[in-house]
């Protein structure tokens, strides 16, 4: 049973350990930030920032800088630009995100072109676009850990104003909260967590873990605290199971080529979201409770 589930060497593999740790940390941070991202309807910005961060990655290849600097720097710059162009209305905000995303991708195209003409190694594009959790260096762990703590601390420090301004910008403004400043701080936290997770686990996984677990948990519970917890748990579970399946998949096919870990994690996240839309049990419970209320109301009358 155990050897069927865990192919040989799973627990003794160094890259697997690093993948499990970094994957879990990224899943928790992006899960928490993701709940606010989904609540605020900023999924597009959250996704676009991964592409913007990627541009930073390709730029840092060109200038020979460490990619982490490129990823984070571009992410923060992009978030600032989106906020600067951004307008109050939801549709306008999406357009602003689109404009920044367009420029970032255009610049990425330029750098990738320059990278290839300069060094003739086209591996850069591949690595930037599909960073793999298995190729991480264990020395990345402390950096990821520190930045994760910074992000969570930032979110915690603006928690209440952020919550109120996410629910109603007018109410928040009436309470003397600077909605603009809170929004900008949130974008900053989003940029750091997205930049971090796109270098650690790749840009596809970054968006998947940001949006998927949060959207799923928000469909399962109405309590915000529980939504944070659910999102973190779903994210970590999907990541670990995905790493396991990806590791095992090397043994599934005779070609021994394996499937990428991002494929499994995204598939799990996606299935969780679809399944949460079905959830027949909670709805039946809800109806029973409503009927109870109605019956009670009848009795009073």
């Amino acid at each position: 049973m155990a050897t069927f589930l865990f192919e040989p060497g799973f627990f003794s593999s160094g890259p697997v350990h690093v993948a499990l740790v970094i994957g879990a940390v990224s899943a928790v941070v992006t899960g928490v930030v993701g709940v606010f991202t989904v609540l605020r309807g900023q999924s597009f910005a959250g996704h676009a920032l991964t592409d913007v961060a990627t541009t930073g990655g390709s730029a840092s290849f060109f200038y020979g800088l460490t990619p982490l600097l490129g990823f984070l720097g571009a992410g923060v710059l992009g978030a600032g630009a989106m906020d600067l162009v951004g307008v109050q209305r939801l549709r306008g905000r999406d357009i602003a995100t689109g404009v920044v995303l367009g420029v970032a991708t255009g610049v990425a195209a330029l750098y990738l072109y320059l990278d290839t003409t300069k060094s003739a190694t086209t591996g850069a594009a591949q690595q930037v676009l599909f960073g793999s959790i298995f190729t991480l260096d264990s020395s990345t762990i402390p950096v990821v850990a520190v930045l994760s703590v910074v992000t969570l601390a930032l979110i915690a420090s603006i928690y209440r104003p952020l919550l109120l301004s996410s629910l109603s910008a007018d109410l928040a403004a009436a309470r003397g909260i600077s909605v603009r400043a809170v929004g900008l701080l949130f974008m900053l936290a989003l940029a750091i967590s997205v930049g971090l997770s796109s270098i650690a686990i790749g840009s596809i996984l970054s968006t998947a873990l940001l949006i998927g677990p949060a959207a799923t948990s928000l469909r399962l519970t109405r309590s915000l605290r529980r939504a944070f917890a659910f999102a973190a748990v779903i994210g970590v579970a999907a990541t670990w199971l995905g790493v396991l399946f990806a590791y095992d998949s090397y043994y599934w096919f005779p070609s021994s080529q394996g499937l990428p870990v991002s494929f499994f994690i995204v598939l799990l996240v996606f299935l969780a979201y679809v399944a949460s839309g079905l959830h027949p049990i909670p709805r039946a419970l809800k109806r029973a409770r409503l009927d109870g209320h109605a019956a009670a109301a009848q009795r009073v009358r």
Binding site: Q42, A215, V269, G277
Partner: peptide, 21 residues
């Protein structure tokens, strides 16, 4: 049945992940 932007993001990453596979 869900939030449009979250659904779009999930559909996108699902396709990208298939592409990676």
């Amino acid at each position: 049945r869900g939030r449009a932007d979250a659904v779009t993001a999930l559909a996108l990453v699902m396709m990208l992940a298939l592409g990676a596979a």
